[in-house]
Simulated assay, not measured.
Amino acid sequence: MTTGRITESMLERSALGDLQRAVRRVADAQRRVSSGRDLVRPSDDPLRTARALAARNELALVRELRDNVRDASTWQDVADKALGNISDYLQRARELIVQGANDAVGQRGRDAIARELDEIIAAIKQEANASYAGRYVFAGTATQTRPYDPNGADTYAGDAGVIERAIGPGVRITVNVVRGGALLGQGQAANDGLILDTLRDAADQLRTGTPAALNALRTTTLQAVDRNLDELGRARAEVGATTQRLESADARLAELELSVGTLRSEAEDADMAKAITDLIAQQTAYQAALRAGANVLQTSLLDFLR
């Protein structure tokens, strides 16, 4: 049996290898401390790496859902404010109609009321053009199309399409619960009895001023105004119910985000006290390897000189 002779070059290579490994361990320990992450590379712990990746993916999904909820909530806020303003305008129009239907009001007064109704119609159409983030909230899916021309015809330019957002795993919600055409209508040409048609009729009846026109104003037209006010109330209630549902969804998602974030942290983040202790230990080991390597290399050099 032969025994291999340990040469100076073998000792040198061994010392250098020890130093390189010590340097890598120090570098890994430093990265853990500086990054706060326990997993420097996937091979450190494949099982924890898989858990961390799964948690990251789920966290990204939860945050995307929360973004959807916030977007939908702001949409409801814009819609509710516009509907509230339209309701105020329509209530003012009702007061004017009651005033104009009074026989004591002369034709000049009725003409002035009719002009104010024209202004209210333009203001209502402007409210129906409410937008959020460059999208018209009452235009159906035609969000880049202005629903109404405030100074033109009463034709609705949007559509009846539905916009939905995912707010949970397998859960979707309609964002545009109110479409302008279903409330304001298409004007007198459509004879749909909705807001624009009703107010145009009222203005015409005031300008006509005949007993038959005034009788229609105080009966049929006033009743139509009341029906439209009721519809506005129902629309606002639907927006309010959607807002409450979104608030509940956001609360659930916030809890889920915290829970998943904790799982990700447990899978990825380092125990800082342990990481710092390990760094100190690796630095100490490196210094020891450095001193040992220096002795080996110094001895080899002296042997060479002799």
Rank of each mutant, 00 (worst) to 15 (best):
T299A: 13
G140F: 03
R21I: 09
P42I: 04
Y148A: 10
E127S: 15
D44A: 08
A93M: 13
E12H: 10
A166D: 08
R21Q: 11
R5N: 10
K125C: 10
A55Q: 03
E119V: 05
L196C: 08
T49R: 04
L199N: 07
D77H: 12
A224F: 04
L256M: 10
A128N: 03
I163T: 15
D197A: 08
A128M: 15
V105F: 15
D118A: 14
A122L: 12
E64K: 05
L279A: 07
R66W: 07
Q107M: 14
L206S: 01
A60C: 06
Q76V: 10
A153E: 11
L47Y: 13
Q144M: 13
R236C: 03
L297K: 14
Q188A: 15
A203W: 04
T277L: 12
G261H: 12
G181F: 02
R32P: 03
D45P: 04
D80M: 06
I121P: 00
G193I: 05
S265M: 12
D192S: 06
T221S: 06
A72E: 08
R63A: 08
R179K: 15
R5D: 06
T208F: 02
R179N: 07
I124G: 01
R37I: 00
I173Y: 01
T284E: 09
E64N: 15
T198H: 10
G134Q: 09
Q186T: 09
T208P: 03
G193A: 09
S87W: 00
V171W: 04
T277Y: 07
L253N: 00
V62A: 02
I120S: 08
L117C: 08
L301P: 04
A22P: 03
